[in-house]
Amino acid sequence: MLAACVACVLSTAACAAEDVRQPSAIGTDAPVIVPGSPGSPARTATPGERVGRTPRPTVAADVRFAEAMIPHHRQALEMTSLVEERTTTDVVRRVARAITAAQTPEIRAMTSWLADLGRPAPAGHDHTSMGPGYGMASEEELNALRAARGDVFDRLFLQLMTRHHEGAVKMAKEELTGGRDHRMRLLAKDVYSGQSIEIARMRAAMTSLPAS
């Protein structure tokens, strides 16, 4: 009888431990809200859906992604802030507004994530900090953009921002290859898909500009 009691206790403990490790299934009673990815709305879980997942360890690739993408995004926002006073083209305005709307909350999300790790967000947008191949504009290119107006501005903006986005897509690929943190991988997926779409839009907008 004693052996049976011990076995029962051990079995109960094992079941409890397994319940802690596994995500729980959603019933049909009270609704469960599942947070969306950065910049996306939350949603209601469907009955029977399993929510929650075992946390994955944060690795160096995750930190590198956040610490590089924050200044990368900041430079994009600096470029979009120039648009309203310098363009006369609606499509360029729409592109700039979409970039601002997407990247502002992503900066907040990455800054908060780094703060949870006890790491400060990088300052500024030093174009030398991540090496060549990531699309950062040089100070000379930024000065040329600030000085341009009209069609000249539009063409230079689209050229610089397309290259900038291509660099961000490259960074997102690196995170999806080497990163482990669930939040950073979700954000990298958003960057990859969203900026790939915007690259196609900017290339199309470039063809609509008057020939230089």
Rank of each mutant, 00 (worst) to 15 (best):
G39E: 07
S40F: 13
A42L: 00
R43I: 03
T44I: 15
T44L: 14
T44A: 11
A45S: 10
A45D: 11
A45Q: 09
T46M: 12
T46D: 11
P47N: 11
G48M: 07
E49F: 08
E49N: 10
R50V: 10
R50K: 13
R50A: 11
R50Y: 10
V51A: 06
G52T: 08
G52Y: 04
G52R: 04
R53M: 10
R53K: 11
T54H: 09
T54P: 00
P55D: 01
R56Q: 15
R56F: 05
R56D: 13
P57A: 13
T58P: 02
T58G: 08
T58K: 00
T58M: 07
T58C: 12
T58W: 07
V59P: 02
A60M: 11
A60D: 14
A61G: 07
D62V: 05
D62S: 05
V63H: 01
R64T: 15
R64C: 06
R64N: 13
F65H: 06
F65R: 00
A66Q: 05
A66P: 07
A66W: 04
A66N: 08
E67W: 00
E67P: 00
A68T: 13
A68P: 00
I70G: 01
I70F: 03
I70K: 01
I70S: 01
H73Y: 10
H73N: 10
H73S: 05
R74C: 03
Q75N: 06
Q75M: 10
A76F: 08
L77S: 05
L77D: 06
E78K: 00
E78S: 07
M79F: 02
M79K: 00
T80R: 03
S81T: 04
S81K: 04
V83E: 03
V83K: 00
E85K: 12
R86H: 11
T87A: 09
T88L: 10
T88V: 11
T88S: 14
T88P: 00
T89W: 10
D90G: 09
D90I: 11
D90Q: 15
D90S: 15
V91L: 10
V91G: 04
V92D: 02
R93S: 14
R94H: 13
A96E: 08
A96H: 08
A96N: 07
R97G: 13
R97M: 12
T100F: 05
T100V: 02
A101Y: 07
A101L: 12
A102S: 14
T104W: 09
P105D: 09
I107W: 06
I107M: 08
R108Y: 09
A109H: 15
M110G: 12
T111Q: 15
T111H: 11
